[in-house]
C-alpha cells in the first residue's frame, strides 16, 4: 500500500506539513480562518533541531499494536490497509498511546478521544495534504516493498 515516507536529509524543519495537516482536518476552506491565532493539533509532528529534522506520523503498520490493544475496537485496519479511528467508539483510555512504538497517535484537542493520521482519506483533501504541501519532498507518498 502507499504510505508516507521520510527523506530526512531534505527536511527544512519549516513545519509546513503540520499546518497543512491541521488545515486539512479542520473541515474549513479558509486556511487563515482555520489556523490564525489558534493552537494547532496536527497529526504529523516535526522533530529535531536546526541540524537534523524530520516529520513523524503514523506508519500504518500491517501488524499494528494500537489496533490489537484498543479496548473498544475503535481502531481498525480498513480494506486498503489504512489504520483508522472511529472516534464515535473511542472512549479516550489512551491504551493506544501506550502501545504505539512511534508515538504517533495522540489525544484530540479536547483529550476526550484520540486522533491519528488517516492519510487524509477522512477529509476533503483525498491525498496526504502534508506531502502535497512539503516544499522539498522531505515526505513522500508512495509504494515501497
Amino acid at each position: 500500500m502507499k504510505r508516507i515516507y521520510v527523506n530526512e536529509e531534505w527536511c527544512l524543519g519549516c513545519h509546513l506539513c503540520e499546518y497543512q495537516c491541521a488545515f486539512a482536518n479542520s473541515g474549513m476552506d479558509d486556511m487563515v480562518k482555520a489556523l490564525k491565532g489558534k493552537t494547532i493539533h496536527p497529526r504529523i509532528q516535526v522533530e529535531g533541531d536546526n541540524k537534523i529534522s524530520f516529520a513523524v506520523n503514523c506508519r500504518h503498520c500491517s501488524d499494528a499494536r494500537c489496533v490489537k490493544g484498543c479496548i473498544s475496537g475503535a481502531l481498525s485496519r480498513d480494506k486498503d490497509g489504512v489504520v483508522v479511528i472511529d472516534t464515535d467508539k473511542c472512549v479516550g483510555c489512551f491504551t493506544c498511546i501506550l502501545s504505539c512504538p512511534y508515538g504517533v497517535i495522540m489525544p484530540s484537542s479536547d483529550h476526550s478521544v484520540v486522533q491519528k493520521c488517516q492519510l487524509c482519506m477522512d477529509n476533503a483533501s483525498g491525498e496526504p495534504a502534508c506531502v502535497k504541501g512539503c516544499p522539498n519532498r522531505a515526505i513522500v507518498y508512495e509504494e515501497r516493498i
Binding site: 489512551f94 498511546i97 502501545s99 508515538g103
Partner: peptide
C-alpha cells in the same frame, strides 16, 4: 504527561 508514551514502551 503521557504524550508519545509508546516510545518508552518500545
Amino acid at each position: 504527561d503521557i504524550e508519545r508514551a509508546g516510545i518508552y514502551t518500545r
